[in-house]
Simulated scan of single mutants.
Amino acid sequence: MKIKCLVWAASLLLVSACDNPAPPEESFAGLGSEAGDFAQVVPGKAFSFPDDHGPHDGFRIEWWYVTANLKDAQGNPFGVQWTLFRNALKAGPLQPGWRDSTIWLGHAAVTSASRHYAAERYARGGVGQAGAQAMPFSAWIDNWTFATRPGAASALTDMQLKAGDGHFNYDLRLTSSRPLVLQGDNGYSRKSDQGQASYYYSQPFFQAKGSLILDGKTYQVSGPAWLDREWSSQPLTANQTGWDWFSLHLDNGAHLMLFRVRQKEGGPYLTGTWIDKDGRLQTLHNQDIQLTPLDSTEIEGRRVPVRWSLKVPGKQLDITTEAVNPKAWMKVSIPYWEGPVRFEGGVGYLEMTGY
C-alpha cells in the first residue's frame, strides 16, 4: 500500500510555507478531504511503461519505495528501506527553477536484530537536487539514488540502490526478469469503501546483492527485494486513523501484499494481492484475509503490534509474523514503525502508522 499521506503532512508543514498555501482542511493526516484541481484516480487506466516509472505531474502525491530482506554470509538478517516521495503543492504544470512548487522527501533505513537507523532528507523541485525520470529511469535525492544500471536490457530489470547517513550505508544491485504486478483492479487500488484510491504497481521479484555498512562494519548481503510505485491525489477519509501494510516473500515462490486501513468507526478496510510462483494474481478481499495482532511492544511511549497472526484460508496460508527488531521505529518528522519481519516459510516487511 505505502500510502505516505502521514509523512507528506510533515513535508507540507515544514517546507511549504514559502508558497503560502491555504491551510489544509481537517482530515486524515492533515491533507484535506478534497483533491481540488489535481488529476483524479479512476478505474480503467491503461498503464504505459516505461513512462509510468517516471513522475506524474498532474497528481498530488507519489512515491518510489524499495524494501529488501537481506542476510550476510553467516545468515544474520538485515532490512533495508529506500523511499522517495514527490508532493505537488499546487495543481498545474511544473515551473522552471525555484518557481517549481514540488517538494521531494527521502527516507532511508537499515535494520538488524539489535539496531535500527533511519534518515530523512528534503529538497525543493526544479533545481536538480531531487527528482525522477522515466528514460533512463532514475530517482534521486542528493546522493541517495535508485536507477537503472548502464547497459540494462530495460527499466527495472537491473538497478542500483544507494543511500547512507551517519551510522549506515548501502550499495545494492537489484535484478529481475519477471513482469510487474498491477495491484488491486488492474492497478486501481481502493483504500476505502467511499472511493479513495491510488494507482499502484509493484515489482516483488527483485533479488538484491551488495554491500551494507553498519556502524563502520561492512557486510556482504543478499536476499529478496520489493518495489512499490503509487500515485494519487485523493486523501484518505477523516474516519481512517492509520494502516498496517505487509509485503511477504514465501519460500515456495509465492508473494503476498496486503493492508488494512483502521477506522474510528466500523471495521478496518482490508485487501491484498496473492501472487503465485508463476506470477498469476488474485485480488483478496476482507472475507479472504484474517489478520490479528498478537503481541505489542512499547516504543517512544506507544504500544505497537509487532507479532501478527495472518491467515488466507483459500491459499492454505496460516503464519505468525514477528519483527526482526521490535524497536524498528522511524523517528522522522511524522514517526511510524517499519521493518523486516520473518515467519516459518518466508520473510517480508511491515509498515504501521497511526499508533
Rank of each mutant, 00 (worst) to 15 (best):
W8I: 10
W98D: 11
P224I: 12
S101E: 10
F168S: 01
V306N: 02
I213W: 04
P305D: 10
L317S: 04
V221Y: 07
P335H: 12
L6A: 08
H167N: 13
Q133M: 12
G187T: 08
Q207H: 13
C5G: 14
D72W: 06
K277V: 14
P136K: 05
W329Q: 09
Q220T: 14
K209M: 06
F38P: 00
R262I: 13
G58L: 10
Q220K: 14
A46V: 15
Y336G: 04
S189C: 06
E25K: 09
A208Y: 01
S177K: 06
M352D: 00
A109I: 05
Q81T: 05
P224V: 05
E300M: 12
Y219Q: 13
S198L: 03
W337T: 05
E265W: 01
A123Y: 09
Q129K: 13
L14R: 09
S48Q: 11
N87D: 01
L227Q: 11
D193Y: 12
Q203S: 07
W144Q: 11
A130H: 08
S112C: 02
V221W: 07
F28D: 01
Q287I: 08
A153T: 09
P150C: 05
Q95N: 08
I141L: 15
E338L: 12
L89Q: 11
Y122M: 07
L284G: 01
E322I: 04
A109T: 08
W63H: 15
T157V: 03
T175S: 11
N252H: 09
F78D: 01
V324P: 00
G36W: 08
K311S: 11
G128P: 01
P50I: 02
M257A: 13
G267D: 14
G354A: 13
M352H: 10
T83L: 12
H53W: 15
A73R: 13
G79L: 14
D165F: 09
I213Y: 00
A147Y: 06
A22D: 10
P150A: 07
K2P: 01
G54A: 07
P340R: 08
L70M: 10
K71E: 11
P305H: 03
H255V: 00
A118V: 15
A29E: 02
W140E: 01
A152N: 05
G58M: 04
A91M: 06
V66S: 03
T353F: 07
A22Q: 10
D278S: 14
T148Q: 15
N87W: 03
K217S: 08
E322Q: 13
V306E: 01
V15A: 14
R178N: 03
L212W: 03
P204Q: 04
D185L: 07
L258N: 02
G125L: 04
N143K: 12
I213A: 05
R124T: 03
V66E: 05
A10S: 13
S33V: 12
T292A: 15
F28H: 14
C18Q: 15
G339C: 12
G184Q: 01
A130D: 05
S198V: 05
W231Y: 15
G75T: 05
L94D: 04
K311A: 10
E298Q: 14
H167P: 09
R60C: 02
R115G: 00
R115I: 02
I289H: 00
K45D: 04
N169Y: 13
G44E: 13
A197T: 12
L250H: 07
K2F: 11
E120F: 08
E230H: 09
